[in-house]
């Protein structure tokens, strides 16, 4: 698939990172687009758990939650899950900054198992080994008419095999369908005279 066709396709068998307030929404968006079992690794002390009734269609049945108690177990779980062949997507919420060593080990594990990984990191706490890094923010839609639009601003701030770009999309969190929001542009050229 050409990258222009689907800007949000994560390169398979690599580990990616997402930061910002909207990172969990981005992870669920990706989970809905990846077939196969899903592993969500969530440290035991984090109070936010996915709510089954609010997840996109088809994600709840495939989702497995791991609640490791220590950061060491978390990293071990990530590697073990990435090495497993049948898993579709591994989502992990790391609490501490990922070292380059940990990031590189994850990339190797992902290549062994041909599994895609997505690390939800604290802002600025990623590792240099990540394939892409996404900055995700929920956006308020200021137009009065769009009562139920759920805008997201998803930007690539690091891309090892492509360019960084910004997108604003409207995704309502129930399916894999989304709408691109075109950017408002100021007109430079003079307007055509009315005919």
């Amino acid at each position: 698939m050409r990258p222009e066709m689907d800007p949000f396709a994560l390169r398979s068998a690599r580990v990616h990172e997402a930061e910002g307030r909207g990172r969990r929404a981005f992870a669920l968006f990706q989970a809905a687009r990846h077939p196969g079992p899903l592993i969500w690794i969530l440290p035991a002390h984090i109070p936010e758990v996915p709510m089954l009734r609010g997840l996109p269609q088809g994600v709840g049945e495939r989702l497995h939650l791991l609640r490791p108690s220590t950061e060491m177990d978390l990293l071990w779980c990530i590697e073990e899950a990435l090495q497993a062949v049948p898993v579709g997507l591994v989502i992990a919420e790391a609490q501490k900054p990922l070292s380059f060593l940990a990031g590189r080990r994850q990339q190797l594990a992902a290549e062994t198992g041909r599994t895609t990984g997505l690390m939800l990191i604290q802002t600025g706490a990623g590792s240099n080994a990540a394939e892409t890094r996404w900055q995700c923010q929920p956006l308020a839609s200021l137009q009065k008419t769009s009562a139920d639009s759920t805008l997201h601003c998803w930007n690539t701030i690091k891309n090892k095999s492509g360019t960084c770009k910004n997108w604003t999309i409207n995704w309502n969190g129930t399916s894999t369908a989304f709408h691109m929001v075109s950017e408002a542009r100021e007109r430079h050229e003079p307007a055509q005279p009315p005919r």
Binding site: G60, H64, R67, D73, E80, A81
Partner: peptide
Amino acid sequence: REDELADLLSSLGNRIGFDRVLRLLP
């Protein structure tokens, strides 16, 4: 694939405990 997933869950459960490998049920 089911067998492989069960193997993965076994090895995860043996390390972090089977009460920490969870699933959401309606």
